[in-house]
């Protein structure tokens, strides 16, 4: 019972046949070659699969592929259309990652946070990233990078 869907992926119109149980995360990774969203828990707990759906962060493991028909999906790959983002440079500088597995999810969440709140307080940053788990960094280097980044912007 495959269903044909069409949607925008990172600025490009795509068409695809998907099954009723296929999650967006599964489809992105196994059918579309988009591997920055990672599988961490497959139940919405960890945020490693965070992407933008019509500009808002969602956990792609909780979205059925059928649901995105006619909508706009953006992954970290799409955000880097014009090269590495300044916030990415800042996160490299601040060692805001260790193993790197959760990093794409954090970047998508950070991007969404800064779009809504260009100069967030520390509490707003914590709140904005609370849906993404990281076991390596202790989060402080991620939060510090965003604070440093937005200071220079303001």
């Amino acid at each position: 019972m495959k269903n044909k869907i069409s949607f925008i992926l990172n600025g490009e119109k795509r068409q695809l046949e998907v099954g009723p149980q296929d999650t967006l995360l599964e489809v992105l990774r196994t059918k579309l070659g988009i591997t920055s969203p990672k599988v961490g828990c497959d139940r919405g707990d960890c945020g490693a699969c965070t992407i933008l759906l019509n500009g808002d962060t969602v956990k792609s493991c909780l979205i059925l592929a059928n649901e995105i028909d006619g909508q706009e999906v953006t992954t970290l790959e799409g955000l880097m259309e014009h090269g590495i983002l300044p916030i990415q440079e800042k996160m490299v500088e601040k060692n805001s990652f260790q193993c790197g597995y959760c990093t794409p999810g954090f970047l998508v969440s950070t991007h969404a946070l800064l779009k809504k709140t260009p100069c967030p307080t520390k509490e707003e940053i914590k709140e904005g990233l609370a849906g993404n788990l990281c076991r390596c960094t202790g989060y402080t280097p991620i939060i510090d990078a965003i604070i440093d980044f937005t200071k220079k912007n303001s």
Partner: peptide
């Protein structure tokens, strides 16, 4: 840094 921050770094399942 660049590999990990861009999502270019590959893990087994990638």
């Amino acid at each position: 840094g660049k590999e990990k921050i861009t999502g270019a770094a590959k893990y087994v399942d990638d």
